[in-house]
């Protein structure tokens, strides 16, 4: 951890990116993520139809030339819904993890920096949060808050705050013992300046790597909540919600479950591959092996 936290500056981003993309597995992950991102961004142009438009005559039509991936029980075009659904997945997972990184990172950083009893109590609280099954915590939060995109983001970020607090704290415990922190205090730097200018840059990499991996978890959580019926309200297309609809018709229209299932898989796998690759590249111990 010491060496990770204080690895020499800018192990040159370009070198790192190069090493990252030279690993075929990571490259595959980048491609998978790029596909989903492109689909989400270009949904208005790529989607053949309006994702909400219902064609009752064509309901539960199989994949074919008319509807590339078929239609659901209301006759809505599955492909269009998939493309638009990617937006919700990406939006919710990115924003919830971004806020968890900021809030959790701040809690862990400040707690580790202050140390002592405050640190002890804060980390105890984080451990309690950590021990609670995150999916269930998310379910309860959404149920209590009501399901909107904002509440979904709040609920999911809440389930990820504790791990980021832990990740941020560990290197801070090492860094704060280094003489340059004390030098800063002797020079009259405020604690805020020391934290932001001298501590934060040393832990940012760790947070970003874990952020990628946790975004994969957030995609899963969002899809799971939508599948249970606690996600973004219908008719807004979400992958989990599409699985829920498809599951009701699974006996005769299994493809309704397969497409959104594969979409979720592609995004989560892509994020996991990238995160795994980032882990290897940024961890000098793994590099040495």
């Amino acid at each position: 951890m010491t060496d990770v936290a204080l690895s020499e500056p800018r192990s040159s981003w370009r070198v790192m990116a190069g090493r990252l993309l030279s690993d075929p597995v990571t490259l595959a992950g980048v491609i998978l993520c790029a596909i989903v991102l492109a689909g989400a961004l270009l949904a208005p142009w790529l989607a053949p139809r309006d994702p909400l438009e219902q064609n009752i005559i064509d309901r539960l039509a199989g994949p074919g030339s008319e509807y590339l991936l078929g239609t659901d029980q209301f006759g809505r075009d599955v492909l269009s819904r998939l493309l638009w659904g990617a937006r919700i997945s990406l939006l919710v997972s990115f924003l919830s993890i971004a806020s968890a990184v900021v809030v959790g990172g701040a809690i862990g950083m400040v707690s580790g920096y202050i140390g002592g009893r405050f640190d002890l109590v804060t980390m105890q609280v984080m451990d309690v949060l950590l021990s609670f099954p995150s999916l269930i915590l998310g379910m309860i939060m959404v149920a209590l808050l009501g399901s909107s995109v904002t509440n979904l983001i709040i609920a999911i970020s809440l389930t990820a705050i504790a791990p980021f607090a832990r990740i941020a704290r560990a290197p801070v415990l090492v860094i704060k013992e280094r003489a340059f922190i004390e030098a800063g205090r002797a020079l009259g730097f405020s604690h805020l300046r020391i934290l932001l200018v001298h501590v934060l840059p040393n832990i940012v990499t760790d947070l970003l790597v874990m952020g990628t991996l946790w975004m994969a978890t957030a995609v899963r959580t969002e899809a799971s909540l939508s599948f249970i019926g606690l996600g973004v309200k219908p008719p807004t297309p979400t992958w989990g919600g599409m699985m829920r609809d498809g599951f009701e018709n699974i006996l005769d229209s299994a493809w309704l479950c397969i497409w959104p299932g594969l979409a979720i898989l592609v995004l989560v796998l892509g994020l996991n591959l990238v995160g795994d690759g980032l882990c290897d590249v940024t961890d000098p111990k793994a590099n040495a092996q």
Binding site: L6, S7, E8, P9, R10, R178, A179, F180, E182, A183, A186, L187, G188, V197, H198, P201, N202
Partner: peptide, 23 residues
């Protein structure tokens, strides 16, 4: 205190840990 910080300074033993490697 801020004024005092300006008037007295410290030089550390370990030249490796006394400088922030990223700055």
């Amino acid at each position: 205190l801020q004024q005092l910080r300006r008037r007295m300074q410290i030089v550390f033993q370990d030249p490796y840990s006394s400088l922030n490697p990223r700055r």
